[in-house]
């Protein structure tokens, strides 16, 4: 199988679907001529032209509002918010309009749009360009929330998001854009349905439930524990909303010990939802330790790169957390 980057996988998903469906349009800041702040849309402006790949003014509210309106009138827009931190500016249109319109109009309106935006720290972009704000959007009924951790998942999940008739917030991991992974040939089209978690590593002793950039980090920790004879299962949630609860519960019943890891601040983070999903099920009777959460520190992401690396779950922190469960 060929190997491509996470960014390329996203580009392919958009381009392939846009070739099939001319109602798909793409808009955002510097996505056209410039090819996107992280180069994700490189070549798309040239291929699809400025009718379908639109550079917009610097107004996330306008871009998101346009997309929601266009979606209700028949287009299937993709919006790129340059940094997920700017979702604050798009939130009115996203949370109060796009998420609610289907319900508001009694099912007579649909909002088939995808809001793509990179989240996460690690680039030295400091506090307003490094946050992980998935919990904000997970809390809004009507929005689906996807965070892929590999090029393969990114392509398959983005296609599913584009084909979905509801607004989907597709949070990419800016630190993963350059990461590579195996993805089928272009001819071998595939879709990964939303709402299906993926067991990235099977194990029987401890379950790590995670998503995004922390999947790879957890897998590395798992490999190190394997040499000690501790068999860790790593579940990549992939779709936060809708959540594959069954996968989490079954794994917790198997191992009896669960660690939830995410980069976002721990307080009010989605890890609370993941943990309580397990505790609030028959898996409770199989738990052999308190379900442990490991999130980022409750501080703004520091500009200093050394500090920045320390505020999110590191391999050392994940390792220590696993040891507490054993």
């Amino acid at each position: 199988m060929r190997t491509i980057t996470y960014a390329q996988a996203i580009n392919e998903a958009m381009s392939e679907e846009m070739r099939k469906d001319e109602n798909i349009v793409f808009m955002g800041e510097d996505i056209g001529v410039y090819g996107g702040a992280f180069g994700v849309s490189r070549g798309m402006f040239e291929e699809f032209g400025d009718d379908r790949v639109k550079d917009t003014p610097i107004s996330e509210l306008v871009i998101t509002g346009c997309a929601a309106g266009a979606a209700m009138t028949g287009l299937r827009p993709i919006v790129e918010i340059m940094f997920s931190d700017f979702i604050t500016l798009a939130m009115e249109q996203l949370a109060n309009q796009a998420a609610k319109n289907r319900f508001q109009f009694g099912g007579q309106a649909a909002v088939p749009m995808v809001l793509r935006t990179p989240g996460g720290s690690g680039t030295g972009a400091a506090e307003q360009h490094s946050q992980s704000l998935e919990a904000w959007v997970c809390h809004v009924p009507g929005l689906k929330v996807v965070i892929p951790s590999t090029p393969y998942d990114a392509k398959g999940l983005l296609k599913a998001s584009m084909l979905d008739n509801n607004p989907v917030v597709f949070i990419e991991q800016k630190l993963l854009y350059r990461s590579k992974g195996e993805v089928p040939e272009v001819e071998d089209d595939y879709i990964i349905p939303l709402g299906k978690a993926d067991i990235k590593r099977e194990g029987k002793d401890v379950t790590i439930v995670t998503y995004g950039r922390m999947v790879q980090r957890s897998l590395e920790v798992a490999e190190k524990f394997a040499s000690e004879g501790v068999d860790i299962e790593v579940i990549d949630v992939r779709t936060l909303v809708p959540l594959d609860k069954e996968c989490l519960i079954e794994s917790a019943k198997k191992t009896g010990k669960v660690l939830v890891v995410h980069e976002a601040c721990q307080t009010g983070g989605y890890g609370g939802e993941l943990a309580s999903t397990i505790v609030d099920s028959d898996a409770f009777f199989y738990l052999d330790a308190p379900v442990k959460r490991l999130g980022g520190l409750d501080v703004p992401i520091p500009y200093n790169p050394n500090l920045e690396a320390l505020v999110v779950p590191t391999e050392e922190k994940i390792t220590a957390a696993v040891r507490e469960l054993l």
Partner: peptide, 11 residues
């Protein structure tokens, strides 16, 4: 009186 055990242990 202060016997603590995990749900799994109880089960």
């Amino acid at each position: 009186s202060d016997l603590r055990s995990t749900p799994a242990a109880k089960r």
